[in-house]
Design a protein around this nucleic acid. Structure first.
Length: 266
DNA sequence: AACACGGTCAACCGCTCCCTC
DNA sequence: TGAGGGAGCGGTTGACCGTGT
């Protein structure tokens, strides 16, 4: 083949980079890929170029097969029922498109992702804009209430000057491994260590009860799983900037998330 | 008719996870 | 046990197309 022909082919067929073709697939490429999968099955995508004579890298081949050529793909518009499922599962799992796709036979993660972005992202933005306004109103109300609360607490603090309660230091000790999801025994150990470090002589009954209740909340949780890595635990601890109080939250959400993620959608 | 604009979707990219050696 | 490769995932890009002006 002359260089002129090769150059012309590249212009017509797409970009060549390091020997791999990129861009839209041709009918001939599709045919070669289908034949390859018929003969060798799915997988070993990096062998496709060698065995099927395709000038595509493995990733490109896999994507083309999974998103376009697979015989079990459902063509056509997303049905209202599928849309309902997508909304429901996205509310549950967020952008885990492949997980959502597993509950919608014949639909690909890419298809669902695109559908979401084009159909719902804008709606979500509009509703979030509205919720921002109500959030601002709520914030103003909360600030007023917090000011009043602060005044009350200042009065109480004057009565309790003997108790120095450095919760920030406690937080830094407990969160030494940021975003790590400790096992229950680890959490109890951490609590004990933190308590004795911060309050070597002075931890009183009140704070012991507090720490114990923190870890009792977590006792309702199932053992940590790999899935925990996918959950953002940043919101696990909340600190009230004004009063210095901390409270444990999301334990119920965490349990719900974990069980729901393990349950297939029907 | 021509242009601008927005929606759609196939394909690519970069990252992470997992398996094998 | 760690390195390397394969596979999968989510985010992003860009081409194409329809519609409005």
């Amino acid at each position: 083949m002359s260089w002129e022909v090769m150059a012309a082919e590249q212009l017509v067929w797409g970009v060549m980079e390091e020997g791999w073709r990129k861009g839209p697939w041709t009918a001939e490429e599709d045919r070669l890929l289908i034949e390859y999968v018929k003969l060798h099955g799915e997988g070993r995508w990096n062998s496709v170029a060698r065995l099927a004579g395709l000038k595509r890298n493995g990733k490109s081949c896999r994507l083309r097969w999974v998103n376009y050529l697979r015989p079990d793909l459902k063509r056509g518009q997303i049905t209202p029922h599928e849309e309902k499922v997508i909304l429901e599962l996205h509310a549950r799992w967020g952008n885990r498109w492949s997980t959502i796709a597993r509950s919608l036979p014949g639909r690909t993660d890419n298809e669902i992702k695109n559908y979401w972005r084009t159909h719902f992202k804008k709606k979500a933005k509009v509703s979030s804009d509205n919720s921002e306004k109500s959030k601002a109103r709520l914030l103003r109300r909360q600030q007023f209430q917090q000011q009043q609360l602060l005044q009350q607490q200042q009065q109480q603090q004057q009565q309790q000057q003997t108790q120095v309660f450095d919760m920030r230091r406690l937080m830094s000790l407990l969160d030494e491994n940021e975003n790590r999801v400790p096992t229950l025994p680890q959490m109890k150990q951490d609590a004990s260590a933190a308590a004795t470090t911060i309050f070597p002589n002075t931890i009183d009954d009140h704070h012991q009860v507090f720490l114990y209740s923190v870890f009792n909340n977590s006792a309702a949780l199932p053992e940590a799983t790999n899935h925990d890595q996918d959950i953002n635990w940043d919101g696990l601890w909340n600190m009230d900037e004004f009063s210095g109080n901390i409270y444990y939250s999301n334990s119920a959400n965490r349990a719900t998330l974990r069980t729901s993620a393990a349950t297939p959608y029907y």
